[in-house]
Design a protein around this nucleic acid. Structure first.
Lengths: 253, 253
DNA sequence: TGTATTTGTTGCGATATCGCACAAAGGAGT
DNA sequence: ACTCCTTTGTGCGATATCGCAACAAATACA
């Protein structure tokens, strides 16, 4: 079934690459810029952009293209599709209330985690997180939990294919140390990350497992780093997290 | 520049229609179902779906297709692109805290509003709202504010092109009454909706205006219907909303 | 069980796409 | 003004797409 050349539509694949060229760093693109980012011929890129504009996915001022809210229809089909956010939200709210910290649920997309639900408390992080937000998996507690659920070789390949910037002095960036961390997550059943994403931010994550035993998402809490040792923090937060994990396990199919 | 047939890519437009066939009501689609929804030939739909699957936007179990988190990359490019959510979030949080109710910011896409930021308090609505969520414009306070900012004829055309279901006994569905409501929003500068979306839910919205005087978004608060008259509720909530509107006006460019 | 209907797949020809090459149009610097 | 350089726009031929139609396989129904 794979790679049946005759059943592939080049134009569609190219158009999607062009849409993905629009990021937070490059929200406005000329034809040349878009073609450079997407790695396509300028003529082709131009035709993609004009098609997107014609159908309302892009706005065109004669020089620059920008994506419109219409493209959200493409993506939110997925988020809206998922029953998970709706199911977990009440537990997230209750857990957040109980432990007095922000809690979130995320899934994995390649080497990134995607937030699908969140109960925010105080603001610890400099960046605002919301459903749909993405963070790299290698340096986040939920990312470690989700990568640990994959076969080791798959996880390694994904990490090797992604950039692993040293976001803070404590960020682990060596592939072997990351793989060891994943191994530890597998045996302990949870992941702890101490100021590897951002200075001042700690987090603990546990897997959300469905009835078939597959890890479908991760649940975490993020809290400010303090003089308290990570072990002490773990004592406070791990049990409530595991309890919600257990409740969700009972419910998910 | 418009409708240059030679510069249009049919395959891309078709593929996007197929992606949009996946909604919350139809999250899993067979080839035939997708082709019926998208209005395309089965063969073409199949080639679109196989292409999407090949590139990771869909999962295929041999019978049904589902969209994967990867499609979120298409949409969140837009949300991430927008500076608005980041800018308004702190005000939203503060406002929500001050008045003790949920607050949101939304933009307009055709005849639907799209939530771009939200500070949730208690749960009034049966449906969970999050950034990217959509509601029809005709029966929501933010929708009325955003439609009112358009030329009357444009607003009328959008309303005529969209379904206007009677969601509750109080929902206004007649085009002329809706247009009068918009006119009133224009003169008063805010919109009030009383249990037209859902029984038990009231809301008040004000426009968010940029330096050029254009309405770029709407800000609202939703609160439970009670024995309190709508006028009393307005007294409590309108001033804080208008105050935030003013603050945002100072900041936006 | 047999028959009718729907669904998935494939061959094929008319038609559209796409990338090259080149022309035209701006912009920066002199 | 000029050149130089970048960017946008456009014929055109090789190649790929797409919708029809036909067929196979699965499912529904009697």
């Amino acid at each position: 079934m794979e790679t049946k050349q005759s059943d592939m539509m080049g134009g569609l694949a190219k158009g999607l690459r062009v849409i993905e060229a629009f990021t937070v760093e490059t929200p406005r693109l000329s034809i040349s810029e878009a073609s450079a980012i997407a790695g396509l011929d300028r003529a082709t890129t131009r035709r993609c952009l004009l098609t997107l504009a014609e159908h309302g996915y892009c706005a065109y001022d004669g020089k620059y293209f920008t994506v419109t809210p219409r493209v959200l229809r493409l993506g939110t089909g997925c988020l809206a599709t998922m029953p998970l956010p709706r199911i977990v939200q009440p537990w997230l709210d209750a857990l957040s209330e109980e432990i007095g910290q922000s809690t979130s649920v995320a899934i994995l997309d390649e080497a990134e985690i995607v937030y699908v639900a969140r109960a925010a408390q105080r603001k610890v992080m400099s960046i605002a997180l919301m459903p749909g937000s993405r963070l790299p998996a290698y340096c986040t507690s939920m990312g470690r939990v989700l990568l640990a659920a994959l076969p080791a070789e798959t996880a390694r390949n994904r990490l090797l294919a992604a950039p692993l910037p040293q976001r803070t002095p404590r960020t682990i960036t060596e592939i072997d140390r990351l793989m060891s961390a994943l191994e530890r997550v597998r045996t302990e059943g949870y992941a702890v990350v101490d100021e590897e994403v951002e200075l001042g931010l700690r987090s603990i994550a546990v897997p959300i497992v469905n009835a078939r035993g597959a890890t479908v998402a991760a649940l975490n809490t993020g809290f400010p780093a303090s003089s308290e040792t990570m072990e002490k923090a773990q004592e406070r937060f791990l049990d409530p997290l595991l309890h919600v994990r257990q409740e969700l396990f009972r419910i998910l199919n």
